[in-house]
Design a protein around this nucleic acid. Structure first.
Lengths: 200, 200
DNA sequence: TCCCGACCTGGACACTTGACCCAGTCGGAT
DNA sequence: ATCCGACTGGGTCAAGTGTCCAGGTCGGGA
């Protein structure tokens, strides 16, 4: 094994664990599976981390900081507000569809965090990060179209995340893109109706 | 142990497993934990079920048939359409809030089923059952108010489930009822706008 | 009454898991 | 060049897991 600083080894293990979790689920993320994915000897695990739980905690911290809806940020302004929202939601769902296991892993991690007392705060942080990303997007759209939202941004952000979560969950189960697009049409219409002319 | 027909023992074990899963999660539903919850000797498990997977499969079948949004059926007609929908959604969320672990267990079961090839069909069935329940409610409301929905019922049902799923997920994470009620207001408004006067 | 099949269960097996010890190895500061 | 602390990794342990066996026990039909 190449010599490696402990911090770097921790990062490698977190990445490997993320791949294992996406491929086979949280339950399959055993120390041995992670170490095999990272191509390290088993003992390296407990040299870098005190315990498996410590790895999971760091993994969740990483996810919260780095992965919040990053894909949706490349928002394209096209036509009117409703169309833009619809395209944005469709783009989001396409990201989910392009790597369903990743999104499923995020859901599982949230659930795992909720079940683990020491990590329940992490689930909250994960969602706060989602809400923050959603708020950013909503503000950008409002500015682009020179309009304001009828409800306060935090509330709008929660509505948007509620919709994307529901959309994701439904699609993951039956992978019916046509049905999902029907829901997207509804969501775009409903969200657009919450905008009003005029800047702040 | 009292003498018991095999079928009845299977049912008891399924109920015990359901309690264990709600309390401690799917991962904790080991044969020993289930058997302890049911107050049976370990060997009874494999007398009643060929394997743990068979128990889980039967458990999911039970859930799908018996628990689909049954609570929301006691729908109260109050005031106008929008108010009725809002009350219905609030009642649904109250059910979730009254026993959060149960709903969390349902989510985990869906996820588990999605991860298990032989059970992925079960997840689909679970959601079809949700959609059917939602469709029933939507039709009842439409009839009560003498109106029709602008989109076909299956599509309306999916929209409703998308909203309740997102609502549930968000509430489970931060348990912020006030924020959730804000989303409910939005959902009620949006859904009500999809109705039009006149019977079929 | 007897008997047979359905039901019960203590115990064991093979395997996986998280954890960790300790003898070895490297590399940069002195 | 040497040395010491950081790093490596084979091997091992106890605990926990799903599964199964083999012999016991009971109740109802003949």
């Amino acid at each position: 094994m190449v010599r490696m600083a402990a911090a770097q080894r921790r990062a490698s293990l977190v990445q490997a664990a993320l791949r294992v979790i996406a491929r086979d689920g949280v339950a399959a993320a055993t120390t041995r599976a992670i170490v095999a994915e990272a191509d390290m000897p088993l003992a390296s695990f407990h040299y870098a981390f005190r315990s498996r739980d410590e790895l999971i905690a760091e993994l969740i911290r990483f996810v919260v900081e780095n992965e919040a809806l990053a894909a949706a940020e490349a928002l394209s302004i096209a036509g009117d507000l409703r169309t833009t929202i619809r395209h944005g939601l469709k783009a989001f769902l396409d990201v989910v569809a392009s790597d369903p296991l990743r999104e499923q892993a995020m859901l599982e991690l949230t659930q795992y965090a909720l079940r683990t007392p020491e990590l329940s705060g992490s689930a909250r942080l994960q969602y706060e990060s989602y809400y923050r990303a959603a708020a950013g997007i909503l503000e950008a759209v409002a500015q682009q179209f020179d309009l304001t939202w009828k409800k306060p941004i935090p509330q709008m952000a929660r509505i948007l995340i509620t919709l994307t979560d529901g959309l994701t969950l439904g699609w993951l189960v039956d992978r019916d893109m046509a049905a999902a697009e029907g829901v997207i049409d509804f969501a775009a219409e409903a969200l657009a109706s919450l905008a009003q002319e005029g800047p702040l």
